[in-house]
Computed example of a mutant assay.
Amino acid sequence: MWKSIASNALTFLVVAVFLLGGALIWAQNTYSDEGPLAEAICLDVPRGSNMSLVSENLAEQGAVSSPMLFRLGAEYSDKTQDLKAGSFLVPERASMAEIVDIVTRGGASTCGTEIIYRIGVNAAEVEVRELDPATGRFVEVVEFDPAADAALPEDYVSRRDDADTRFRVALAEGVTSWQVVEELKSVDVLEGEVEVPVEGSLAPDSYEIARGDSRAELIGRMQRAQEVILAEAWENRADELPLETPEEALILASIVEKETGVAEERPQVASVFVNRLRRGMRLQTDPTVIYGITEGQGVLGRGIRQSELRAATPYNTYVIEGLPPTPIANPGRLSIEAALNPAETPYVFFVADGTGGHAFAETLEEHNRNVARWREIEAERAQQQN
């Protein structure tokens, strides 16, 4: 009898172990395999939430087949306490393991509403946009000029005050430090006063910010980024450049930045100025003259007068020798790299060619022909407008 009981118990134990093993394999496969989500969704994880609430939300939206298995998988992988608040894009067919990784890895939210404060050379704008999870593309909600609009759009105010909204400041290449500080004053999610930093010291880029961040700290981030870019470019500079210091390289880069918006021709533009410096020729560039007039405080808004071209000022490169005393804008990485690794060309002249780029020349005779052609293009355009 005891032998029979023992035999039955052993059989039961073997079956139980077999079933448990099978259940574990099934659970592991289900946790790692493709999920049931037919279309991507934005998953909101409020502050103070937990894996239980998240799992139920996912189940309601058809993203997981078993809320309990989702929670057990997060617990088993030791990620339950790493849950982050935010709005996250969950792609179609995402597995439970992938979703757990998405909501626990940290970093910026990947879904929902984003407000971008764009600081441009000629104007600033605020854009409110939302990610469409079905297409993975942002859809613009509203865009406005904070200086021109007397009242803030309701679409902006409501989303600005939403706890899950993300914010960015996007700095265009070629803006001046004065322009940056002036526009940051209107970014109403930032706090504190800030002085105008040294010209050229800010790296044009897109910066994530949070509500309540300090304007001074944001400026500090921009300065540290520019220091890194300049140091790397200086370390990898070409041999025998007519530049003695990284500061001189930054001045030249700012001139290159203001002379062309065509990325691929920046090394050629830089080569013209480097060739002129090597030959002891004056740089003769309008953007430096304009900076001397405006001091970087906005755009000139008119042509340069002949009297201004003849005036002996520190920024009038038609009169002074060599570089002006400071940068004339905040140059981007490409212009800094171009200034320190210019193309090898014989060019010492360039003029606009009507396409957005420039026509380059080695001799004054060739340059004069290019200038004549540009004058013809200007006359044709003026006639078309009349």
Rank of each mutant, 00 (worst) to 15 (best):
A134G: 12
F144R: 03
V181H: 12
A147I: 05
S177Q: 03
E173F: 08
E173D: 09
A134C: 13
D132M: 07
I119P: 00
A148V: 13
V142G: 08
I116M: 03
A150P: 12
A150T: 11
A148N: 09
E143I: 13
V128C: 01
L184W: 04
V139H: 14
D132P: 00
L131S: 01
D155Q: 08
E127V: 07
E140Y: 15
T176E: 00
P133C: 02
T135I: 14
A172V: 15
N122I: 11
D164Y: 09
Q179R: 07
V126W: 02
F167S: 01
P153R: 01
E114P: 10
F167N: 04
L184V: 03
I115H: 08
A150L: 13
A124R: 01
E140G: 13
E143K: 12
V175A: 11
E154R: 10
A151M: 09
Y156T: 04
P146D: 00
R159N: 03
K185Q: 15
R137F: 15
A147D: 02
L131A: 05
A124P: 00
T113R: 04
A170M: 11
A150R: 12
F144E: 04
R129E: 09
P133Y: 02
V121M: 13
D145I: 00
R118W: 15
W178D: 11
V181K: 08
P133W: 02
G136Y: 05
V126D: 00
A170V: 09
T113D: 13
G174L: 07
F144Y: 06
A147S: 14
S158K: 12
S158F: 13
E114W: 06
I115G: 09
L184G: 02
G174C: 05
L152T: 00
F138P: 03
E125G: 06
Q179N: 09
Y156K: 09
D149L: 14
Y117L: 02
V126C: 07
A151T: 12
E143Y: 10
A148T: 06
T165L: 04
E173A: 11
G174D: 07
A170K: 08
L152H: 00
A150H: 10
T113S: 13
V121E: 04
E127D: 11
A124N: 01
T165G: 02
I116T: 03
T176N: 01
V157T: 09
R168A: 14
P133H: 03
Q179H: 08
R118Y: 15
A172T: 14
E114C: 08
I116S: 02
E114M: 15
D155H: 07
E125M: 06
R129K: 04
A163L: 13
Y156N: 05
V121H: 05
F138W: 14
Y156Q: 05
P146C: 05
L184I: 02
R137G: 11
E127P: 04
G174Y: 05
E127T: 12
